[in-house]
Computed example of a mutant assay.
Amino acid sequence: MADSNWTSPSPSTFILVGIPGLEKAHLWISIPFCSVYILSLLGNSLLLAVIKVEPTLHEPMYLFLAMLAFTDLVVSTTAVPKTLCIFWFRDGATHIDMCLAQIFLIHCLTTMESGFMLAMAFDRYVAICNPLQHSAILTNRVITMIGLGIVMRGAVLLGPHPILLRQLPYCTTNVISHTYCEFMALVKLACVDTTVLRAYGLVVAFLTGGLDFIFIVLSYILILRAVFNLPSKEARLKSLGTCSSHVCIMLVSYTPAFFSFFSHRFGHMDPHIHILVANVYLLVPPMMNPIIYGVRTPGIRQSVVHILGLKPV
C-alpha cells in the first residue's frame, strides 16, 4: 500500500483499494461479481451470434440491440477483470496510462450505451407513430450513420477527460478508493482547484446521458399518445408489448447510473455503498439486457432455441 505521506506530484502508478471497509469480504464479494461477468459474456455473445445468423433479425431494433450488446461486452471487460485481480490477489497497482485509458473507455462506452438506447427509442417511435414509413426512414445506411454518430459523440466529448486528468498534480496520495479508475475519483485526488473540470464533467454528462434520457421520455410520450389513439384494445396491447423490453432495459440502466452520478457529486453516503452502486451500474445492465430481450422478444427467443437445438416451449 502506498504511503499516506506520499508527495510526488506526477505519479506513474495509482493504487486501487477495492471497496473500503469491506476488504475482509473481498473474496466473497468476488463470487457474485465473477458470476455476473460470466453471464454477461455468455448472454451478450449469444445475442450477437443470434442476430448475426438469423436473417429475420436484421431489422433496425435488433441491429441497435447488437450495437448495445457489443458495447456491454467491452465496458464490462474494461472494468471487471481488474476488479477481480484486486479481490483475489490484492493487485491494485495500475499504471497511470492504463488508469486513464480505463477512465476513457468506461465513460465513453457508457455514453454509447445511452446513445444506443435512444436510437432504440427512436426506432420504436417510428415503428408505432409512422409504421408505413419505418423501412424507408430507417434504412441500413441511416442505421450505420446513427451508430457511427453515437460512437463519434462519445469519443469527441470524452476524449479530453484523460488529457485533462493527466495534467493535474496529485500531491497528497496516489490511492484510489474504488474498484476501477473513475473520473471523479481522480479529480478528488488533485491538489488544485478543479471547479472548471468538475463543471466540464457535468456539461458532458448532460449533453450525453441527460439529453438522451430527455429525448427517450419525449419519444415515449408521443408513443403513448399514438397507442391510446388506436381503435382496439388488442392493437394497443400489441404496440405496448413491442416497447416493454426497451422500457425494462432503460430502468435497469438509468436507475443505478443516475444514482451513482448524483451521489458522487452531491450526495453524502458511505464510500462502500457508493462503490457498490457504481459497480452495479457497470455489471447488472450488461447481464440483464440479453436476458430481458431473450425472454420478452419472441423472435430472439425462438432463434436461441433453434441455435441451441432445444425443443420449443
Results as ranks from 00 to 15, higher is better:
Q167L: 15
R153Q: 15
S135T: 09
N140K: 11
P131E: 06
T179I: 15
I146P: 00
I163N: 01
E182L: 09
L132N: 12
N130Y: 13
T144P: 00
N140Y: 03
M152I: 10
T179Y: 13
I143L: 14
V175Q: 13
V142N: 04
R153C: 14
M145N: 02
C181M: 15
S135Q: 14
Q133D: 14
S177L: 14
G154L: 02
F122Y: 14
V126I: 14
I163L: 09
I137L: 13
L168W: 10
V142P: 03
Q167G: 12
L165W: 05
N174M: 02
M152G: 01
T144W: 12
V175K: 13
R166H: 13
V126T: 05
L157S: 03
Y170A: 07
L157G: 01
T179R: 07
L148Y: 11
L168F: 05
R141A: 11
T179V: 14
L186K: 08
C129D: 02
P131Q: 06
I150Y: 03
Y125S: 04
Q133F: 11
L148G: 02
V126S: 01
C171Q: 10
G159P: 01
M184R: 11
I128H: 05
H178K: 08
I143Q: 08
P169H: 07
G147Y: 01
G154Y: 07
L157A: 00
Q167C: 07
V156A: 08
I128R: 03
R166K: 14
A155M: 13
R124P: 03
L157N: 03
N140H: 08
G147W: 04
V175W: 09
N130G: 02
G149L: 07
C181A: 12
M145C: 11
I128S: 06
H134A: 15
A185Q: 08
G159D: 02
L138W: 06
T179S: 12
L148Q: 02
I143A: 02
L164Y: 11
R153G: 08
L132F: 12
M145T: 10
N174P: 06
G149Q: 03
F183N: 10
